[in-house]
């Protein structure tokens, strides 16, 4: 038994390095998507202290809208543009109808409001586009479907072109986002608002504008994640579950750190895959991916309550 836990998995890893690389690659791709969803959470939390429970459903809603609009006859890329427009309208509506009347309320109220948004979006999505599973319009969007076979160490490594595209697009998106946050007026305003509302007001930053902007960016991220995940697993409300994977990512990475969200997402993606293949399937009968991330987050919380990258909490007494 001990041998199975502590020795066999590592022997397997060394003996079949090509298979290990395959596992790592697949974990990395999931990790990229977890990181994207976590990023959506972090952006909204930083600028408004709201833990946005609706981030997961926004992914589903964006994907549904895209597929639905395409089914209604819009060409693929026009459907993407139209979906972006829908996400913008959604951001404006949420700010006007939900956030603005609740300014200054305790965080828990705002959190509850985002649960309300979640339920509303589920209902709206089902009413307009129906609840059945749909296929992402991968081909129409020009996302390649083949694969590349590499032969490292004389073995076999299969890279799906879809996965490669997902990783590249995600890297580009995160890069653009970081540049936007660090080098532009609006980006600086977003970061400023997260630090101190009063000071932000005093330098002429409008809360409302920034909130709309941040929710819109979260909507863009949701659309990209929705396309990527939808291409892998189909578009249905079950997708929402992957959004909850973002919660352990946030516990690891901290709610405020963009770097934390990225590193946390990749870590969870890779670790859960490795655990599943080398420990889960042989010893526990598989399907450990469903809970591994949460257990890992719990263990981290025991030792570092602020997360791996969160600021140390020092309270002056």
């Amino acid at each position: 038994m001990l041998r199975d836990i502590f020795i066999t998995p590592f022997v397997d890893m060394v003996e079949a390095p090509d298979f290990l690389m395959q596992v790592l690659w697949e974990g990395l791709v999931s990790g990229v998507l977890y990181a994207l969803i976590a990023l959506g959470f972090v952006l909204i939390f930083r600028s408004s202290r709201i833990l946005n429970f609706a981030q997961g459903i926004m992914v589903v809603f964006a994907a549904l809208t895209l597929v639905g609009l395409h089914a209604m006859g819009l060409p693929a890329w026009i459907a993407v543009a139209a979906t972006l427009a829908v996400m913008f309208v959604l951001a404006v509506t949420i700010e006007r109808v939900v956030l603005r009347p609740l300014v200054g309320q305790p965080d828990i109220i705002l959190f509850m409001a985002t649960i309300g948004i979640t339920l509303f979006l589920i209902g709206l999505g089902e009413t307009i586009f129906g609840g059945e599973n749909k296929v992402m319009i991968t081909g129409e969007l020009g996302i390649p479907t083949g694969d590349t076979v590499l032969e490292p160490f004389g073995g076999l490594l299969i890279l799906q072109h879809l996965d490669i595209t997902v990783v590249l697009v995600a890297v580009a998106l995160v890069g653009a986002l970081l540049a936007f946050l660090n080098y532009t007026r609006m980006g600086r305003a977003i970061r400023a608002l997260g630090d101190d509302h009063q000071a932000a007001l005093s330098v002429g930053i409008s809360l409302q504008t920034i909130w709309v902007l941040v929710w819109f960016i979260a909507g863009i991220i949701a659309l990209v994640t929705g396309i990527a995940w939808g291409a892998r697993a189909g578009v249905s409300f079950a997708l929402e579950v992957i959004a909850y994977k973002a919660l352990p990512v946030l516990m690891l990475g901290g709610l405020e750190s963009i770097t934390g969200a990225i590193v946390g997402g990749l870590m969870i993606g890779v670790l859960e895959k490795i655990f599943e293949i080398y420990w889960g399937q042989p010893l526990l009968g598989g399907n450990t991916e469903a809970w591994f991330a949460f257990v890992l987050a719990l263990i981290v919380l025991l030792f570092r309550p602020q997360g791996l990258f969160g600021e140390r909490i020092i309270e002056r007494v």
Binding site: A176, F180, T184, R185, M186, G187, R188, A189, R191, A192, G194, D195, D196, Q198, A199, A200, S202, V203, G204, I205, L213
Partner: peptide
């Protein structure tokens, strides 16, 4: 009331927000 997580330079730059009005697309 400063933006504690940002550098001194970034903090002072926020003071210029009222003088900057390039479009959001251009910024993006």
């Amino acid at each position: 009331a400063l933006f504690e997580g940002m550098t001194v330079l970034d903090n002072v730059m926020t003071g210029r927000l009222t003088h900057m009005n390039a479009g959001i697309l251009s910024q993006a």
